[in-house]
């Protein structure tokens, strides 16, 4: 409740200040998800961990800004940014044209392909005809939903609030397949006990309109100063090795992409 009232007060202040941009020196509030391992997850004690979280603090340190994390469910991510609950999103959000209508993006900070996952030996044919009528799970409001609706319109698409729920239902056998970020599926499901008996089917899938150019930091439109600062910080951590040390904590290859 307290967090809610402070957020409300902050929003009221922001409104009172008109469209004043986030100026240097002020504390930056960063919107993160916390249900997308290994990019972000929540520890038993409530603290947030993961690649996105480490990148957030590395960027803030480079920019010389104090940062606090604000947790937000995925499907309210952009509305909450626009409502000034926080000033930037670092939540593995892909840079797409549809999202650019609402927010501005920095350059990408990583880019990984998306793939289907199904039960081992299911012989699933990853084609529009092969998936027709099959129950396929994706997280609601993701690039993967866009991809499925565009290229596999005949599939029985099931939409979930979180990616964790998609895996839960795949493991329970309610879904014939799920479609998501390949790296996240590997680290957050296939390599765990819950993912035993499941495997990738088909190769990496990509559609520019849906998947965009990789994951970037999202900001409200018109925050040009902050956008430049974030862009510079992303390039700086790439150069000075900070990115590599964070990357190597979670992955055995460079997730930045080409």
């Amino acid at each position: 409740m307290k967090r809610f009232t402070t957020a409300l007060a902050a929003a009221a202040l922001a409104v009172a200040a008109g469209t004043a941009s986030v100026s240097a020196g002020e504390e930056l509030r960063i919107g993160v998800e916390g249900a997308y391992p290994p990019f972000s997850w929540k520890e038993a004690d409530g603290s947030l961990k993961g690649f996105d979280i480490d990148i957030t603090f590395a960027l803030c340190e480079k920019m010389g800004r104090e940062c606090t994390l604000v947790e937000q469910d995925w499907d309210g991510m952009i509305p909450a940014l626009l409502a000034r609950k926080y000033d930037a999103i670092v939540a593995s959000m892909s840079i797409t044209e549809e999202r650019k209508k609402r927010v501005d993006f920095t350059v990408k900070y990583y880019n990984t392909p998306a793939r289907f996952v199904a039960a081992e030996g299911s012989d699933l044919d990853v084609s529009p005809a092969g998936l027709a009528g099959k129950a396929v799970g994706v997280q609601r409001g993701t690039t993967h939903q866009c991809f499925m609706e565009k290229l596999f319109p005949e599939a029985d698409l099931r939409l979930y609030q979180t990616q964790e729920e998609v895996f839960l239902d795949l493991a329970a056998g309610r879904l014939d397949a799920q479609f998501s970020d390949a790296l996240q599926a590997d680290e957050g499901f296939l390599k765990l006990d819950a993912g035993k008996g499941f495997a990738f089917v088909g190769g990496p899938q990509y559609d520019l309109e849906c998947h965009g150019e990789g994951a970037g930091v999202a900001l409200r439109k018109g925050e040009d100063e902050l956008l430049q600062a974030f862009n510079a910080a992303i390039l700086a951590i790439r150069e000075d090795g900070t990115y590599k040390s964070i990357n190597d904590k979670y992955f055995d290859f460079d997730v930045y992409g080409d």
């Binding site: 991510m77 509305p79 609601r140 409001g141 099931r158 939409l159």
Partner: peptide, 22 residues
Amino acid sequence: STVTIVDILGAGRILNSKYYLA
């Protein structure tokens, strides 16, 4: 709507998430 059924609220949630609306 929390268990993948597209009822009235489910439809609203899909609209919101598709176009990033509040």
